[in-house]
């Protein structure tokens, strides 16, 4: 009889398909009026021997049924999880939430890169006013009135004495005066500068320059070369080489134009570098003794180098931009192209 019941219950449990039904079966077997519970209901009529016999059999049956219920339960839980998972399927190809991420202007990004390179070499970053005096923009920089070099940079004037700086160099004079007569100087000066040029593909009446100045007793042209070599590798890639070409600036002597190997063809010659393999990147030189003397140092003792570069030019080369006006149009579709970390 017990073995028949065992078979019947086993079949019942096997046939169950939901945790809910299994729970009901559990009650119908082990509850107060459950099938197994009822087996021991009229034990008082039985002998001790019979009681023990029945008790043992019922116990075994109970243990057995509990195990298979437990197994069935685990099976059904697993089955439910799997069913739920399938029911919860989503389209992973739908777009995610759109974050609002801003961008810095490409000139700021380029300026930041240049600044952080020079920072790592111990250069301080200083800034100055854009409205300058003729004295600081020209006279102190060894460009007296009627100097032919004043033709090179047509100037916006507010008055005879006041102008929009044509380069960041007036800060050379101001920094030297602040540190004269014997303070060592190692600074860069980023900032907006102005020339009285019509705007076109390569000219902008407003542009951004970064000036560099190092003054001490033994700062040489070789030091300038070393500094700019590192700069070029840092900004344009570790394989970049530089070359100095003699040039002329009133505020440096010797003066050089500095070219870097073309980042597109790596010096082989291509349309970007007009087949020369080189791209002109900045002007530099040893600070002219007149400038040093004009600004409170003794040029017999102190010397150093200076350089100046156009941030637009660096950015145009780095990003392959062919029209300088794009920087100042501020089309968002342009600005948002420079959102990568590096």
């Amino acid at each position: 009889m017990i073995s028949e019941l065992k078979q019947e219950l086993t079949n019942m449990i096997n046939d169950v398909n939901s945790l809910n039904d299994l729970q009901n079966i559990k009650v119908s077997i082990f509850g107060k009026k459950g099938r197994i519970t009822l087996l021991t209901k009229d034990m008082k009529d039985k002998t001790i021997e019979e009681r023990r016999q029945i008790g043992q059999e019922v116990h075994q049956l109970k243990e057995y049924i509990e195990i298979i219920i437990k197994q069935k339960e685990l099976f059904l839980i697993e089955k439910k999880i799997n069913d739920d998972i399938n029911n919860e399927a989503i389209d992973i190809y739908l777009p995610g939430m759109e974050f609002n991420s801003g961008t810095l202007h490409p000139l700021t990004i380029t300026r930041n890169e240049i600044e952080s390179f020079f920072n790592s070499l111990g250069f301080a970053v200083i800034e100055g006013n854009e409205i300058e005096s003729d004295e600081y923009n020209f006279e102190k920089m060894n460009i007296p009135k009627d100097h032919p070099a004043r033709d090179m940079q047509d100037t916006f004037y507010f008055s005879v004495e006041e102008l929009l700086r044509t380069h960041t160099s007036p800060m050379q004079a101001r920094t030297m005066e602040a540190n004269a007569p014997d303070g060592p100087i190692r600074v860069i000066v980023p900032g907006k500068t102005y020339r009285r040029d019509e705007d076109d593909l390569t000219h902008s009446h407003q542009f951004m320059q970064i000036e560099g100045l190092v003054i001490d007793k033994n700062i040489s042209l070789a030091d300038l070369k070393g500094t700019l070599e590192l700069f070029a590798k840092n900004i344009f890639g570790s394989n970049t080489k530089i070359r100095f070409r003699p040039s002329y600036f009133p505020f440096t002597e010797p003066s050089v134009e500095v070219d870097v190997t073309c980042h597109v063809c790596h010096g082989q010659g291509c349309s970007v570098c007009k087949q020369t393999g080189w791209i002109e990147i900045l002007g530099a030189g040893q600070v002219h003794p007149n400038v040093i003397d004009n600004c409170g140092y003794d040029s017999n003792v102190y010397q150093g180098f200076a350089f100046g570069m156009g941030v637009e030019r660096v950015a145009m080369i780095k990003y392959g931009i062919d029209d300088i006006r794009l920087f100042y149009n501020n089309n968002l579709n342009f600005l948002k192209q420079f959102d990568k970390i590096k």
Binding site: G102, T103, H105, T108, Y194, H205, Q206, Y328, L335
Partner: peptide, 14 residues
């Protein structure tokens, strides 16, 4: 401002 999702512009001073 960059983190807040704003885009930097640089316009002419004149």
């Amino acid at each position: 401002l960059n983190d807040f999702g704003l885009n930097e512009i640089i316009t002419y001073q004149l």
